[in-house]
């Protein structure tokens, strides 16, 4: 497969629509006109490359120079692969999250929960040659939002990934196994296929825990693969 071949279209049902009735903020921000499908050219097939030399990694969000954050320490590890199962090596992952009380270190977050002077809430990691990444953080708290009466976001960590082309750019959220808020969350449930939503859940992994130190969660990410698949024909119909 050429490293400049186009990326596959999304598998039907695997990505959210723009207009999601249960997620109120989409009402005025979703396009009303149909999207125009374009063939991927050099602009879409290639993309930026980031190196730790220029974009330093920060693999431990659980502390700052002045001290350690409050909360349940966690280790998150996983692999970034493409749709053929091939590792995506040396790609940058950006992370951000609320503190253990469910508050972001952000002026726009006025939730009545304490800030933590030892928690900034953002990190940056790179996958290794096998596509593996790992970082340390604290488990983010749930927090209320105003989408509907008594709306709460489940615990989650935001992910930003690039991959090999601009067409593989991905913003997503990692959720936690067993969170009772998942079934009420319009963002998690914005996905047409429940299996697509389930793929956003990190599983607890006893093998990733460090005794006397931190719990462990595993979260793998799959980016678009290159080349045509049988899905391409189905996709052409709409």
């Amino acid at each position: 497969m050429s490293d400049t071949a186009p990326f596959r279209p999304p598998v039907p049902g695997s990505q959210p629509e723009y207009d999601v009735k249960i997620y109120g903020s989409t009402a005025l921000r979703a396009p009303s006109q149909p999207l125009i499908r374009i063939a991927q050219s050099i602009t879409e097939r290639t993309g930026p490359h980031f190196s730790p030399a220029r974009y330093p990694s920060n693999i431990d969000i659980s502390k700052v120079a002045s001290g350690e954050a409050q909360g349940q320490r966690i280790i998150v590890e996983g692999h970034v692969r493409d749709e053929d199962g091939r590792p995506v090596p040396h790609t940058m992952i950006e992370l951000w999250q609320a503190n253990s009380c469910g508050r972001y270190h952000h002026e726009g977050d006025q939730h009545d929960a304490p800030l933590d002077q030892h928690f900034q809430g953002s990190g940056r990691v790179f996958t290794d040659e096998n596509g593996k990444y790992r970082y340390t953080s604290i488990k983010p708290g749930a927090y209320p939002w105003r989408n509907h009466h008594n709306a709460w976001r489940p615990n989650h960590i935001h992910y930003s990934l690039f991959g090999p082309g601009f067409a593989t750019r991905l913003i997503t959220q990692m959720y936690f196994e067993g969170d009772p808020l998942l079934k009420y969350d319009p963002i998690y449930n914005s996905l047409p296929d429940p299996a697509a939503a389930a793929r956003l859940i990190a599983g607890f992994d006893i093998n990733l825990t460090e005794p006397e130190w931190a719990l462990g969660y595993r979260f793998d990410v799959t980016l678009r693969g290159r080349g045509a698949t049988p899905f391409e024909d189905a996709h052409e119909e709409h």
């Binding site: 695997s14 959210p16 199962g85 913003i171 997503t172």
Partner: peptide
């Protein structure tokens, strides 16, 4: 075959 992770 793996399916690409959903956007949020």
């Amino acid at each position: 075959m793996p399916i690409a992770t959903a956007s949020q």
